[in-house]
Structure formats: C-alpha cells, structure tokens
C-alpha cells in the first residue's frame, strides 16, 4: 500500500485524515480511488481539463509528477505521495 499525505486544505473532504493508504499504481488511479471514497478530491486537485492544477503540486517520493509523466506517473507499493499547495516559496 502507498501512502498519500493530505494537505490541511483538503482534510475536510477525507474526514480529517492526514494520511490515506491506497493501492494505487498510478497517480490517476490513486485519485480515482480516493475520489470514489471521498467525492470532491479530484475536483480540487485537477483543473477543468482534468490535468493537475497549476496551483497544486503532486509528488511521488518527493519528485514532482510533472517530471514523471504527470497523472500517469507510477506509484510504487511503498511510495509516499504528497499533495502540496503550489503558492509557496521565493
């Protein structure tokens, strides 16, 4: 099982959980899996075209999925996935 760290802004959608355990495979599959149980997550993480929002970073093992094939990025069984607001730094 992979772990998904949920940012505070989304915790109201997942019963306040900080981390979720998922079976996964790819980021797309993980988001589908979470959204099936906690509807609304996909809407917040993806833009109107279904692509990752420019305002949210998604990371597998600390690596930005934009360098790993986007939503098709593979998520190994023991991986940690982070969802992080992008408006930071500088």
């Amino acid at each position: 099982m992979a772990t998904v760290r949920i940012p505070s802004q989304l915790r109201n959608l997942v019963d306040g959980e900080r981390k979720l355990r998922v079976t996964g495979g790819t980021i797309r599959a993980i988001l589908d899996e979470i959204d099936a149980k906690h509807p609304g997550i996909k809407n917040r993480v993806l833009d109107e075209k279904g692509e990752p929002s420019a305002f949210v970073g998604v990371y597998v093992g600390g690596e930005d999925i934009r360098f790993l094939g986007g939503l098709d990025a593979e998520v190994p069984a023991d991986a940690e996935v982070s969802i992080v607001p992008a408006a930071a730094g500088g």
Partner: peptide
C-alpha cells in the same frame, strides 16, 4: 540535500504540521 524546489515542498509539508509562521508559506 536537494534543490530549492525540493526543500520548498518539504517546508510546505512542515508548515502544514507545525504552528509556525513560515514567512514564504503560510504568512506569504
């Protein structure tokens, strides 16, 4: 040990857990 972007992402995750004023994150 990483790029600025990596540590910035790390700090965003820390800022989510600690009650700190991260000047370029939660008080940005």
């Amino acid at each position: 040990n990483g790029t600025y972007d990596q540590l910035n992402r790390l700090c965003s995750e820390i800022a989510d857990e600690e009650e700190w004023a991260f000047c370029n994150i939660n008080v940005r």
